[in-house]
């Protein structure tokens, strides 16, 4: 973990309530796809934990949904604003754990951390496929960027307004995969784990106090005992989860 000041390079709307903020500065502690950063916002006591959607030399990208006053305030920050950020939090995915053909499954704002992961998998010579699940066509984001990586992409929407009608699990059987990586709401993760034919990793979300393991606010019980979602997580192995 490293506490750094990062500068807002851009902060743009991707959909009605999803924004992408690019932050520049010392991001040397951000090394693992599936990890997160914890952003201090003026006027809010607790930091906002947000997964890292992508990382380049000297910058990271955060894609977040405006769910409350804090993230709404964050969406109003302009270029040049300086933020106090704890970087390099969480265990992240293990890109080396999968076989040749990993399947990436994201739902809603669970999609962003899979983008950086996908780039890392491609870099390792693997052939990932991607399923992106949303409720409605106007909520779809990042599809183009995944397609630009030349990987197979399936989009599902609950109401059928785009791609496959239904949930991400309705598209899983269309792929031949050796391992899976998932991030999304709890019911989606449960369904994915139940439908999957292989081992895999799932990223969980919990309300956090500190984000770095001090308060035990985000603990969940696993088959290996209690873990802190912020520290031993947010990514847990399929076999460790108690549903």
């Amino acid at each position: 973990m490293k506490k750094v000041k990062l500068t807002v390079l851009s902060n743009e709307r991707l959909t009605k309530d999803v924004f992408e903020m690019r932050l520049g500065g010392d991001v040397s502690a951000v090394t693992r796809p599936g990890g997160f950063v914890d952003v201090r916002l003026e006027g809010y006591f607790l930091r906002r934990p947000i997964s890292v959607a992508d990382r380049e030399d000297g910058s990271i990208s955060l894609i977040y949904k405006t769910v409350g006053d804090g993230t709404r305030a964050m969406s109003g920050l302009g270029e040049g604003a300086v933020l106090d950020v704890l970087t390099g939090l969480g265990n992240g995915y293990d890109p080396d754990a999968s076989g040749d053909k990993p399947l990436l499954i994201g739902g809603g704002v669970g999609v962003p951390p899979l983008f950086w992961l996908c780039r890392e998998l491609v870099k390792r010579g693997k052939e990932p496929s991607v399923i992106l699940g949303f409720n409605h066509a106007d909520e779809v984001f990042l599809e183009d960027r995944f397609r630009a990586l030349s990987v197979p992409v399936a989009v599902t929407t609950a109401d059928g307004s785009r791609g496959v009608r239904g949930f991400v699990t309705d598209a899983m059987d269309d792929f031949d995969y050796t391992y899976f990586y998932a991030c999304g709401p709890l019911p989606m993760l449960r369904a994915v784990a139940g439908s999957s034919r292989t081992d895999g990793e799932l990223s969980f979300e919990e309300r956090m106090g500190c984000g770095f393991g001090a308060c035990m606010g985000c603990s969940v019980m696993t088959k290996n005992g209690p873990v802190r979602v912020c520290r031993e997580g947010p990514v847990l192995g399929k076999e460790d989860v108690i549903w």
Binding site: F45, R207, C215, M216, G217, V220
Partner: peptide, 15 residues
């Protein structure tokens, strides 16, 4: 969980 909630200038915990 949830065991944590934010409040004005503070927080609630029920760890």
């Amino acid at each position: 969980t949830p065991r944590i909630a934010e409040t004005p200038s503070g927080m609630l915990n029920s760890v």
